[in-house]
């Protein structure tokens, strides 16, 4: 029994070390831009509003539009955005939504492939998305950049 515990403890320390090494090797820093259709007038929107909107805690009206959030399926963009806006990495955001979704109290924003986010923002005015800052599509306006 004691030997078994020792073996399992050693194994757990090994995978903890491996994971720490993996986290240290995170890819280079990029920036993401929060975008909205250029046709939508937004006078006041703070980073805290964006956080509350993407975490489903607040509804925000911009003129005739109720703002809607869409998530980017690209893991790196998602990590940079949520770390910047809410101090949460991708899995912490997933844990947050798991708490909401599996207690039947709400739904996360729809998740779209990176190539679809810009198109959705343009096609449905009032939609907020985030894309790599280097590939902001024409017809959209940048509200914030992270980090």
């Amino acid at each position: 029994m004691r030997a078994g515990f020792g073996l399992l403890l050693s194994a757990s320390l090994l995978w903890a070390n491996a994971a720490l090494a993996a986290s240290a090797a995170t890819t280079g820093e990029e920036r993401v831009a929060v975008i909205v259709s250029a046709s939508v007038a937004i006078n006041q929107l703070s980073a805290a509003d964006v956080r509350e909107l993407f975490l489903g805690r607040k509804q925000i009206q911009a003129g005739e539009h109720t703002l809607l959030a869409v998530d980017n399926a690209d893991k790196q963009a998602r990590d940079i955005f949520y770390t910047g806006v809410a101090g949460m990495n991708g899995n912490r955001v997933r844990a947050y939504w798991a708490r909401v979704v599996f207690s039947a109290q709400g739904r996360p924003p729809p998740e779209l492939p990176a190539s679809e986010v810009g198109r959705r923002v343009i096609e449905r005015p009032g939609t907020l998305g985030y894309v790599a800052a280097s590939s902001v599509p024409p017809g959209t306006r940048v509200l914030f950049t992270f980090p």
Binding site: R94, A95, Y96, A98, R99, F102, S103, A104
Partner: peptide, 17 residues
């Protein structure tokens, strides 16, 4: 739905969370 007595009762099954 799940009862809501404690901080995490609603989603206690979801160990990932």
């Amino acid at each position: 739905f799940q009862s809501s007595t404690f901080l995490a009762t609603d989603y206690r099954y979801v160990r990932f969370a």
